[in-house]
Design a protein around this nucleic acid. Sequence first.
DNA 1: GTCTATATGAAGATAGAC
DNA 2: GTCTATCTTCATATAGAC
Lengths: 195, 195
Amino acid sequence: MARTTGSHSDITGPRVRAAALTLFAQYGFAAVSMRQIAREVGVQAGALYNYTPDKQSLLFDLMNAHMSELLETRADLPPTDTPLDALEAFTRFHIRFHSERPEEVFIAYMELRNLSAENFEKVERLRRTYENQLEDILRAGIANESFKVADPKLTTMAVIAMLTGVNTWFRQGGRLSLEEVEQIYWDMVRQAVGA
Amino acid sequence: MARTTGSHSDITGPRVRAAALTLFAQYGFAAVSMRQIAREVGVQAGALYNYTPDKQSLLFDLMNAHMSELLETRADLPPTDTPLDALEAFTRFHIRFHSERPEEVFIAYMELRNLSAENFEKVERLRRTYENQLEDILRAGIANESFKVADPKLTTMAVIAMLTGVNTWFRQGGRLSLEEVEQIYWDMVRQAVGA
DNA sequence: GTCTATATGAAGATAGAC
DNA sequence: GTCTATCTTCATATAGAC
């Protein structure tokens, strides 16, 4: 994979981000050096600075892209008729989207403290936007009396923690298919909100 | 806080661990240097090596002590009569124990990948022991038909993720007391297992 | 038990040649 | 756009004096 010299900006940029993604997820941002990323890409460390002003921006770009894609992908889902349908769609979407991107999800959660203050703010804003979408669904279901929820903010956090937790143990080709996991979690969420 | 010289092994050892705990929780194991820990304790970096053979052992000791205390504290709880009582006791214990130790909990989850292979195995064994206690409760409730649970292993992971998630947002003196949070989570867990 | 000093290596980032 | 070389700082860990 090592290259000698030449012009590869179209391809090298994405490869730098891909290498950083995998290495950050495996060893953690602080434990990964620019030299390690460069080795994975097949360039010298200095060359990385053609694609990122510094290591911090590399981390932020990964997290920002992930959160933005989360919001965009969800915005493209078909609309639903009832709060119950909306909650089911949210549950299944969350599990599916996150299970397809284990490295991004891991980094987005584990490396928050390694963001600069201003980058942290930006990522947090996106995360809160996503959480508010679930909270709105819960409030709609409370309003039309299809859910029995004592505190929608708290239930929002509980449901998201529960669903994101799937990533810590789910493996493709394991005992249960993703379809089965989705169904069982949806049953639990539905019962938890008293629907 | 800086000291010149003298004999302080009784007090310095715990202070080294306390400093490491706080710093690891705040900045992450890989981002914290032995010099930083020493500065916090008020000694020179070399002196730390009277209390730990290396940085890795410092991390392992913190995580191992935390997991051991989790199991010991739970073992001291009074016995329960029914699976429903046992599940309620587990839920309330988990929230309470973890909310009292936010730094230890954060490290125990975030720094697993920075453990050596053999230290990781030891910590993982303790964690699985704890998870199995919840799984046993769920199986007992399924057996006597007080719970409706499709898959006890999966529900174990879901409940633990949900409960541990409290630590990401709960703050003493916030909108809800810990008592209220406990009660609302217990309602959700009870409903989620169909009891 | 703690200090100072140091061995040894690696980190992030930049400069200038090609 | 990538290379080699380097600046500057910092890391873990150890040695030996007190």
